[in-house]
Design a protein around this nucleic acid. Structure first.
Lengths: 135, 135
DNA sequence: GTACTTGCAAACAGTTTGCATAGGC
DNA sequence: GCCTATGCAAACTGTTTGCAAGTAC
């Protein structure tokens, strides 16, 4: 709560109800929401909120390392408030994203990338989740 | 060339000029084209080809394990005719995709996925490529 | 001849942009 | 009061769908 206010202020961002609401929505949220699900979840409490505000805010939060963007699925991104090193699993049936604890850390970069700036290695397991396998 | 005809026939698919053209376009192509770049590249030789045919054909080829789909970037997919196990690097500046030889193979699945059907593990390096780093 | 494939247009989903208004500081 | 953030609408991109006409076999 106050953490969020502090984070916004530290980043030199204005504290608006929409921004705080979006940050609160992400707090402890392990469901990896899409832009649309953020919008739909906030609309009941903030009827006037617009999609573009959600886009703006999420973009700002990504830039300030509060969220990470997961372009795992076709057509839309998921967002994760856990920016620590971990992997993801994506169920191709229900399209949900799950967290996976990262196994080996500190791997060396492949030789092909010697001249490049490597920002990050992302590992995604494509799965059919337990629930969806039952059907 | 005849390989493509054979693959289509083996899959029980009709041999159409468009399908053959798309398969030829992918042959030895390491540039990981998007739907749009396939379309643009084929249009000069096949002026009447339509985007929906490209979508249809690519979908069919993915289903028949001739292509793999890479939903690496926001908003669009890339396609790779190399379906053997390997990783990718994506330059966030020029948005090109590079092939990376897979390092360790045969890793075991993480415990979180014990009840799931794991289809694939994909590793993507997010980079700024050599060329883009120079600027 | 039949069934699948193509090409066109329209619909659709997610995202981006421009701009006037509102509101944080 | 200044400047940023919001909300709305319109534009845009990538994708999907419906359907009539065409074509592989």
């Amino acid at each position: 709560m106050n953490q969020n206010l502090k984070k916004l202020k530290d980043a030199g961002l204005k504290v608006t109800p929409q921004r705080v609401a979006i940050m609160e929505f992400f707090e402890g949220n392990r469901s990896h929401p899409s832009i649309n699900s953020i919008y739909e979840n906030l609309k009941p409490d903030y009827p006037s909120i617009s999609v573009s505000t959600v886009y703006n805010t999420v973009e700002t939060l990504v830039k300030n390392n509060y969220l990470m963007e997961l372009p795992i699925a076709k057509g839309r991104s998921f967002y994760d408030p856990d920016i620590s090193e971990h992997d993801h699993a994506y169920c191709i049936k229900c399209e949900r994203v799950f967290d996976i604890e990262s196994s080996q850390t500190g791997q060396t970069n492949p030789p092909e990338l010697s001249g490049c700036k490597v920002l990050e290695l992302r590992k995604t397991y494509y799965i059919v989740c337990e629930e969806c396998s039952r059907e």
